[in-house]
């Protein structure tokens, strides 16, 4: 029997109650499905004095159609619940494909939308047991002085490994954030920054309460992911694309990546493709935009060069699939 370190467990019934508990307890962490946080507590890389379980809060467990035709998804909706919704297959295919490829089905029973968006960054030198890390003098992200991936610098390169964020960013989604100063919304990409040790730009005491997707209209979307063990692993790289065409020319496109940096990346410069004829040539133009915007490092079992190739191949084949779709 290997007990977790001691902490208090609080189970609020409303978002306001959760926020006020969080204010009273600066050492608290929010818990939903626990597939990330409990593992990290067990390994000693998260050490909360208090754990606030959000799964009993009904207001963040709903999925609701919005007046503008969009969809609002509560942060504590599980991925299994999400996958049972027909709207995803019909309108938000990228999110359906991303959710279906998160871990294994038994994780998706409890893993939540908000949890996947707030997933801690991951690294070969970080996601290890206490014994392993202590033998390696820990690392910059937790308790150590040196980043073993880039020892000469003072920057953490742990990789963002969530699957839902790129899909939601490609779909133009926003995050609804609840905090001490009330509710605010922000384009999802704005809650992240490319720093493995502090990748979430949420203020102290804030939490994601929901995600809002705009009406799908004529957008086509999809998600493609590469991982070591297809049944369960985090992405080595993942690509989400949403696009609109008039049947010949590209009207609009958004491309977002995961696994390559410490945050999900919305690819810039794709507006240069608008109005051009869709086809193989455009796929190559798109792929050519990626290398300068990504920075995979030696934070996984596979070398950075491999992930560069994989992300290009994923983007190319996903783009082809979407433009060939009926």
């Amino acid at each position: 029997m290997e007990y977790l370190p001691e902490f208090d467990l609080l189970r609020p019934n409303t978002v306001d109650e959760a926020l006020s508990l969080r204010r009273e307890r600066p050492d608290a962490r929010f818990l939903a499905g626990g597939t990330d946080l409990i593992v990290n507590i067990r390994r000693g890389i998260a050490e909360p004095g208090t754990v606030i379980d959000l799964t009993g809060i009904a207001e963040i467990r709903r999925i609701a159609r919005q007046d503008d035709g969009g969809l609002k998804i509560g942060a504590a909706v599980t991925l299994a619940e999400l996958l049972e919704r027909p709207e995803l297959t019909d309108e938000y295919q990228a999110l359906r494909e991303a959710a279906a490829e998160v871990a294994a089905s038994s994780h998706r029973e409890v893993a939540t939308v908000g949890g996947n968006l707030c997933l801690d960054t991951r690294c070969l030198y970080y996601n290890q047991s206490e014994w392993w890390r202590s033998a390696n003098a820990y690392c910059l992200k937790h308790r150590g002085e040196v980043c073993h991936v880039a020892p000469s610098g003072k920057h953490c390169f742990a990789a963002f490994s969530g699957d839902l964020a790129p899909a939601i960013m490609a779909l133009g989604g926003t995050a609804e954030i609840a905090g001490p100063d009330g509710r605010r919304t922000a384009p999802l990409g704005e809650i992240y920054q490319d720093d493995g040790a502090a990748h979430l730009r949420l203020a102290d005491g804030e939490m994601i309460s929901a995600v809002q997707l705009p009406a799908a209209g004529t957008w086509q979307s999809g998600y493609a992911k590469a991982r070591v063990r297809a049944a369960i692993d985090f992405p080595l790289a993942g690509t989400a694309i949403a696009l609109r065409t008039d049947g010949r020319a590209l009207e609009d496109i958004r491309v977002a990546l995961t696994g390559t940096n410490s945050c999900p990346i919305l690819i810039a410069g794709t507006d240069r493709l608008l109005g051009e004829a869709v086809g193989e040539e455009m796929a190559e133009q798109l792929v050519a935009m990626l290398p300068k915007q990504i920075q995979p490092m030696s934070s996984t079992f596979t070398p950075p060069g491999y992930r560069r190739k994989v992300v290009a191949n994923l983007a190319r084949s996903l783009f082809q699939r979407l433009i060939e779709a009926p």
Binding site: L9, R11, L31, G34, T35, D53, S106, H107
Partner: peptide, 13 residues
């Protein structure tokens, strides 16, 4: 009735 990984679930939840 649904699968749950009991080694990453807190009993009280």
């Amino acid at each position: 009735g649904r699968p749950r990984l009991s080694c990453i679930s807190l009993a009280h939840t």
